[in-house]
Amino acid sequence: MGLAIVVAYAAIAVIDFTYPQLIGVENAYSMIPDYVNTVPQPPAWPTHPFGTTFPGIDLYQAIMAAIRVDLWYSFLIVLVGAIIGITLGVLAAYFGGYIDELLMRFADIFLSIPYLPFAIAVGFILGRELSDVSIALILVWWPLYARYARGQALSVKESAFVEAAKASGVGSWRIMIRHVVPNVLTPIFVQVSLDLGTVVQIFAALTFIGFASANALLPELGALISRGFQYAVTAPWVVFFPGMAILVFAIGMNLLGDGLRDALDPKYRTRRR
């Protein structure tokens, strides 16, 4: 079921990119304000299924478009973070000794950084663009993967089949690539999918605080919430719907992660065949 949700989301994202009109989004890159009716309107079918927010932006359209944006950034963050983290983690496990210690210390430094103040600091230095947020999050995120990958790699390294490969004359690099990495990646995939859900939330939180893109009207879930925050009491839908969007996505990713773990287990490879 998780798959279904995520697929839906992904689909929306893709559609946004190609034919936004399909789901009624007029402009994928920007929210369209309606300066006439600036006061947020409650949900009304069929004109504004989710209502509108200040200043007159149709929520439905905005959310649909925002999904794509959020997805994109979250994906980027997790992926880049994972790649960096896994690579460093596996290398650390492989080389061991000095390098291992060095890399892990390095990772520990970043691991101990609380993301919020760090993001703010980054914002201060680099700017408040969404891309800067992404960088901040990547930096905070990769050590997790490094640690995890390293742990996995270490235990896989000691497996009998790795030793057997060694005895078979397979070179060390090859062993790394063919044996260690695939067995390390499986559990990490699951972690990745779970993290996507988490990152979306964090990303939204940060944009809620105040990071934004140059284009103030770029549809983004966190931005939407912050925009509507002041109206939360009187017009709850302005925060409700974007919030729901985030939540559903997070849950979806979670479920996907579970399903993915089962699917990737080699025991199921046969069933597929």
């Binding site: 009998a160 057997a164 695939p182 499986t186």
Partner: peptide
């Protein structure tokens, strides 16, 4: 030279 291990479960790469 080569080696055969005790535990047949872990001596073959499950993937």
């Amino acid at each position: 030279t080569h080696i055969v291990f005790q535990d047949p479960n872990s001596s073959l790469d499950p993937r």
